[in-house]
Design a protein around this nucleic acid. Sequence first.
DNA 1: GTCAAGTATCTCGATTTCGAGACATTTGTG
DNA 2: CACAAATGTCTCGAAATCGAGATACTTGAC
Lengths: 155, 155
Amino acid sequence: MKPSPSHADVPLQLWVVLARAFDAVERHSRASIARFGLGTTEFGVLEVLYHKGELPVCEVQRRILVESSSTTYVVDKLVKRGLVRRRHSGTDRRVVLLTLTSAGRRLIQRIFPPHAHAMRRAVTALPPREQAQAVRLLRTLGLGAAERLEGNEGG
Amino acid sequence: MKPSPSHADVPLQLWVVLARAFDAVERHSRASIARFGLGTTEFGVLEVLYHKGELPVCEVQRRILVESSSTTYVVDKLVKRGLVRRRHSGTDRRVVLLTLTSAGRRLIQRIFPPHAHAMRRAVTALPPREQAQAVRLLRTLGLGAAERLEGNEGG
DNA sequence: GTCAAGTATCTCGATTTCGAGACATTTGTG
DNA sequence: CACAAATGTCTCGAAATCGAGATACTTGAC
C-alpha cells in the first residue's frame, strides 16, 4: 500500500506521502459519510448524479473510481433503497442511464452540505494559497500517471 | 470515493484531485506488484520488514495503512508462504515480532528494485523541483488531517 | 498487591471489491 | 450486408477489508 522511505529518493517519498495524505483525508470522508448511513461509493454515486444529472453507468463508474462490477453492486443497493432509478437509453441500447429518485435527491441535498463542510475542515492544515498549489501539482501528477497507464499496465 | 466539482471551492477540488492522483499512481503500484504474484498489502509488509528489520505487528500495521484484523490476515498468508516468521517478544508478551525468512528476503531483494523503478516512472509527470514541493505540501496535509482525526471522528 | 484502563493481537462474520468473462449492442471496414 | 473489434452492463465466485469483540498482557494509580 505504500513504498520505501529512502533518504533522497524524492519520487518514492512522493508516493509515500501521497498514500498517507489520501488515507488520512479519506478517513475524514468515511467518517463524515458514515454519519448518514452510507458507504463512500454509495455516496459517490448519489453525489455525482446530484451534480451532473442523469448519467450512464459507465460515466458514473469513471468518477467514483471503482471497477464496473462494483459499480453494478453499489447501484443495485441504491435502487433497492429507492434512491436511484435505472432506465435504458433510447439512442444506445447497451447503455443504462441513472437518475436520482426524489427520495435520493432529498437525501443528497440534505447530507452534501455537512459533508462538504467536513471535507473542507479535513484539508485546513494547508492554507488557501498552498491548497491551490497542491491542486495544480496533484492534477498534473494524476493526469500524467493515468496517461502512462493506458496500454502500458506492466510498468 | 470522491467528492464535488465546484467551480471555486478549492478545498473540495483538492480532495478530488488527491483521490484521482492517488488512484492513478496506485494503479501503477498494483500493476507493478502483480507482476510478482503479490498483493499491495503483502508487498507492503515485506517491504517494511526489508527496510526496517524486525518489527512488531502493530508497527507494521501503522505503515501499511490497513486495520489490525487485515494485518493478521495478510501476515498469515505470508507466513504460510514461508516468507515471514512470527516470534513472541521477550520484553512484552503481548507483542508479536515479524521478520523476513531468508526466502522472504531473497524475494523482496529481487522485486523491490524493479518496483521502485516503476513507481519513479509513475510520478514523472512532475519535474523534480515540483515533486519536492508536492512532498512538502502532502506531508503537511496528511499530518494535519491525521491529527484532526484523533478523538474527533465525527467531523 | 490489586484493580482499572490501555495496548497488542487475533477470531469471526459480514461487507465490499475485484477479475474473468458472458452477453447484447454499436462501430468501423470492406 | 457481413464481420471483427470495441463498448457497456451484468453475473458469478473468490479475495480483501472491515468492525466488533475476545483474549492476554502491561501500565499506572492507589
